[in-house]
Design a protein around this nucleic acid. Sequence first.
DNA 1: CGCAAATTTGACATCCCTCAAAATTGGTGG
DNA 2: CCACCAATTTTGAGGGATGTCAAATTTGCG
Lengths: 239, 239
Amino acid sequence: MDTTISGPSCKHCLARQHCLSARLEGEALDSYEQLVCFYNVPRQTRLVTRGAPLTQLYSVRQGQFKTETRTPGGASQVTGWYLPGQMLGLDALADAHYVSDAVALCDSAVCAIPYQALMTAMAADPALLGQFHQLVGEELVRRQSAMLMLGSARAPQRMAAFLLELAQQQAKGQEKALRLCMPREDISSYLGLAVESVSRLLSRFRAEGLITVSNRAISLLDVPRLRQLAMPADEEVPL
Amino acid sequence: MDTTISGPSCKHCLARQHCLSARLEGEALDSYEQLVCFYNVPRQTRLVTRGAPLTQLYSVRQGQFKTETRTPGGASQVTGWYLPGQMLGLDALADAHYVSDAVALCDSAVCAIPYQALMTAMAADPALLGQFHQLVGEELVRRQSAMLMLGSARAPQRMAAFLLELAQQQAKGQEKALRLCMPREDISSYLGLAVESVSRLLSRFRAEGLITVSNRAISLLDVPRLRQLAMPADEEVPL
DNA sequence: CGCAAATTTGACATCCCTCAAAATTGGTGG
DNA sequence: CCACCAATTTTGAGGGATGTCAAATTTGCG
C-alpha cells in the first residue's frame, strides 16, 4: 500500500459495474466516492494482513491479488484469486480480524473502504446494502465452487476448471488470452496439487492442443474441449 | 417443512446466543420475533431447494442439516453441516436463488426469516445488521477451512479435523460425546474420500484407541492426539 | 424372522506425490 | 550487450496413499 491517488472517479473505473458502487447513481454515488480512498499497490505488496483488526474493506480496481492462509500445521495455502470488481477482506466480518493475507500478483490498484463508515452508509442506502450482500454472496459461491473442485475433481479437471474460471473472470467475455501473474507454486497450492503435477498438466494440455504455454502467458485454444474436461468423467444426472 | 409452531420464543431458545437475535434486547427482540416463523422439519426433509428463488433465510434452532450441491459433472457433494445457531440459505445472496439443497439429518427445527423484511429491519437496526454480517463472515471462514482441509490435508487429517470440528460445534464446550446423524456416504462426500476410506479410517482410529464407534454414535477418547493428527505432519512456521 | 440398505473388510490398480536432476527464465552487474 | 547466478519450471523414475471392485457382515425395520 503506497501512493494515494486522489483522482480517478468511479465513473471512469473499469471495475465499476461489478464493485460496490454498481447500483449507485448521482448523489449516492458522490457520497460513496467520498467514502473511499484510492491506492496503488505494487506487485508483491501485502495489502491485507492475517490477524490484523478489520478497518477497511478493499475493492480491486485493477490488477490481480491472491489470498492465502495457513493450515493448522503452519503451511500456507492460496485460497483465492481476486480480480477487478471483487472485494478483499470480507472474511474479517466474522470476528473483525482478517483471516487471510492478500498479496498483489502484479501492479494493482484498489479502493479502500472504511468498514464502520460503510456500515452506516449501508443502513441509509438499500441499494448499497443490496450490492454488498450480492458481493458477499458471490464470494460464498466462489468458495463453494472451490470446495467442489477440491473435493471431487481429479487433477486434470481441476486444472481445466482453473483455467476456464480465470479466463472468464479476467476478460468477462473476451476470453482466450490469459495472463497468469502467479507462479506455478501458487497455482499448485490453490489446486491442492504438487508443483510438478501442475507443470506436467500444462505440458500435457499443450501437447494435446488445448492451450499454448509461454511461461506465464497462456492461451486457450480449445475452450469447448476444456469445458468438457472440467467435468468429472462419470456422468450421473439422476432426477 | 411441516408444522408451524407459534409458540417458542427466542428467550428460551438454546440457539439464541448464536443466532441472528443474539444482540437484540427488549423491543428490538420483540419485533424480530414477529418477523420470524417457527417450523419443525422432520428427518430427511429438504428445507431449501437449489435453484429456487430466495424468499427466506433459515436459522437452525435444533437438530442438524447438511447442504449439498451438484458438481459440473452432475454428481452431488455435501458442502457443509449446519447446527443450531447457523443460517441456511446465505449463498443465495449472490443472485437471489439458492445454490444448495438443505436437508435435515434428524428431526429438526428452524426459524424462517423473510429476506426482504430482514433487509429493511437491518437497515433500521445496526445491531441486527452487525450480527448478520458476523454470521455471514463465519460462514465464509467455515468454507475457507473446508477448502484448506480438502486442499492440503491427507485422509487421516481430514477425518480427525472433521470429528473435532463437529464435536466442538455440537456441544460448544462439553465435547467428547458425538452423535453423527449422517450416513458414511455423506461424510465421505464432504471429506472428498471414498466411503470405504471413511470406514477404514474410523476402524483404524478405533483400533488405535482414539475413538469408540458404535455405528453412528462416536465418542472421542483422546482429543489431544486427535488434534495432533489433524495437523499435517510437516511442520513449517517460517517467520 | 427376513430382507434391503448401510457398513466393513480385503485385494488390487492407479493417480499423484516425492525425490532428483536438467532446462529455462529473469535479474544484476560487468 | 553479454555473462552469470538464483529462482522457477520442466522432465523423469519410483513409491505410497487412496480409489475401485468385490464380497462378507451388520444394521434397521416391517
